[in-house]
Write a protein that binds this DNA or RNA. Structure first.
Lengths: 111, 111
DNA sequence: TCAATATATCAATGATAGTTGATGTATTGA
DNA sequence: TCAATACATCAACTATCATTGATATATTGA
């Protein structure tokens, strides 16, 4: 009995490397904050630095990680470097993880 | 303009700690394999050890991590300890991450 | 070419995480 | 109580990672 047919077929076993790779980006709170901030539109590094209240090298480092995982795109315009979300689906996934996480916590705390 | 109304409201900013917490479990390939294996039903530790071809202490360690993140439930029955997925949604999320990851890779490789 | 601004990189440090082999603990049956 | 089985924990090692401060690179305008 198939309960859910809404998903395209994917060979999960052969994708786990990629999943772990992307998952790593979702395992750090600062990167998540940056990612969500970029969800509101393309931004320069210095804008992110101000918003996040993090040091510029640290922001650059996390952006590099997000770039390595292909989660953001980069574009230079004069002095400024703009970062943007590569695929909006990652925001949805973060939202689902937030739901799941809060539900799991709520369930635990009710015991 | 609200584009997507299908999500329940969640205060993302206040959930990022939990998201990072759960995300950490999705950042290791061995844990992902264990998690997906448990997606097929409740299993004992020794069964997982055989399926994964990993050492028993290593499997126990990862199960402990998954427990810490509330992603699995445990139940002892005599000599055996059974683990099961706490919330099936995590499987869906892994599947979405797999889609996203493969798409991102495909996009990159086409340049 | 020089100064100023934006961003990236480097070196170093401390913390965390994955792995392994040995050992401990719990449960059951004899 | 003893042996056997299943699982957890521990100690130790290594690798990875987040963070910081200093420095390098790139772009622009004067």
């Amino acid at each position: 009995m198939r309960v859910k047919g809404r998903e395209k077929p994917v060979d999960l076993d052969h994708s786990l490397g990629i999943v772990a790779f992307v998952g790593k980006s979702l395992s750090d709170e600062n990167r998540l904050r940056i990612l969500l901030s970029l969800g509101n539109g393309k931004k320069t590094v210095s804008t992110i630095v101000e918003e996040m209240n993090l040091s510029q090298p640290l922001v650059s480092h996390h952006l590099k990680e997000l770039r390595r995982c292909l989660l953001v795109n980069v574009e230079r315009k004069g002095l400024f470097v703009y970062y943007e979300i590569a695929d909006e689906r990652v925001i949805d996934i973060v939202r689902e993880l937030a739901h799941l996480g809060t539900d799991l916590l709520a369930k635990r705390d009710s015991f």
